[in-house]
Simulated scan of single mutants.
Amino acid sequence: MAIITTSDLTKVYGRDFVAVDHLNIEIEKGEVFGLLGPNGAGKTTTIKMLTTVLKPSGGTAVIDGHDIIRDSLAVRKVIGVVPQDLTTDEDLKGIENLMMVSRFYNVPEERARETIKELVRLVDLEGAMQRYVRQYSGGMRKRLELIAGLVHSPKVLFLDEPTLGLDVQTRSQMWKHIEEVRENLGVTIILTSHYLEEVDALSDRVAIIDHGKIIASGTPAELKASLRGDVITITVSSENDVEKMLEYRGATEVKDLGGNRVRLKVQSADREMASLMNYIVSSGISVTGINVQKPSLDQVFLEYTGREMKDEEPGDFRSMMMRMRRLRR
């Protein structure tokens, strides 16, 4: 059952700049939905419209039965936003921050404390609530931010860059907490991240947006399977060697990447490697490097957009959340 449905959702700036172009997506209740896109693709504009911060130029969306245009206040009550920037007050204790957020949403104090107690247990922060936030580690701050977006018991959580700046070990712990939140609370999560392995690990489904349109969608496994094979990148010594590599017939696709690098797309690198090595030796090609990549979301993203994921402008989600809080008052 879909909890979010967009119907020709469109945003046009000025006379002719189409940021989001007749977007139609359905997000199922209780799933983690990864939304990816390069800078300027329309991802942030889409989220701003879904969170009622930005009014569409055309079309609409329905979240938990509420239209984002006609019932914007009702929408704000059922969604939570956790931005990539840290928004909790360092000069307040953990519990004081959470109680302050609960008051933004007019949650009765007794219910707020009960909800906070459960959330704190989920993310292992029981012993930190009476400590000032400035004493928290980076991972603790991120966990506090996560549950700050849940104190009013939203049905949909917009989660932007949840592990930005964390080390690998702390990041994996944060993944576990996000999964526990989804499992225990049944909340639907819209996830955006520049760590594509994070989106792969957490998302039930992923959509890639570019030029305001969804250009690919499916489960992570389906998207990776769409690449139809592995990628072998070979670095050679000369342009003459590049020309020889471009004549290799065992690949489904051969491309000159420049810089004496050639990319081969093959059905299976494991099966193809012996034939490839024989060709290199028999052709007298001087190879300085070989890199084999199995299908990944990074490759999927590059394949469909022609670009690599780059950092978004900082502070965008923070300003969005602060505006939402003002609108709720």
Rank of each mutant, 00 (worst) to 15 (best):
E312C: 00
K93W: 00
G94E: 06
T87Y: 01
V62M: 07
A2M: 07
L36I: 14
F33D: 13
L54K: 05
T288M: 03
D210V: 10
S217E: 15
G218K: 12
K142N: 03
G229D: 13
E198Q: 09
T252L: 06
D91R: 11
I285V: 14
G212V: 06
D71C: 06
L23E: 05
P314R: 05
K213H: 13
H66Q: 07
E110C: 00
K155P: 07
L159Y: 09
S238Q: 01
E313K: 12
V199W: 12
T52N: 05
Q130E: 15
V12I: 15
G218R: 10
E247L: 13
V181D: 04
M1A: 12
D241T: 00
G212P: 04
K255E: 13
D85E: 15
M99E: 14
A61T: 04
E118W: 00
S57P: 04
L327P: 01
G59F: 03
L86T: 10
R249G: 10
H177N: 08
R15Q: 13
V242S: 01
R113Q: 09
M140I: 09
R171N: 07
G315N: 02
S102V: 04
K77Q: 15
G42S: 07
V151L: 12
M140K: 11
D64K: 13
K142H: 07
E31L: 00
D71R: 11
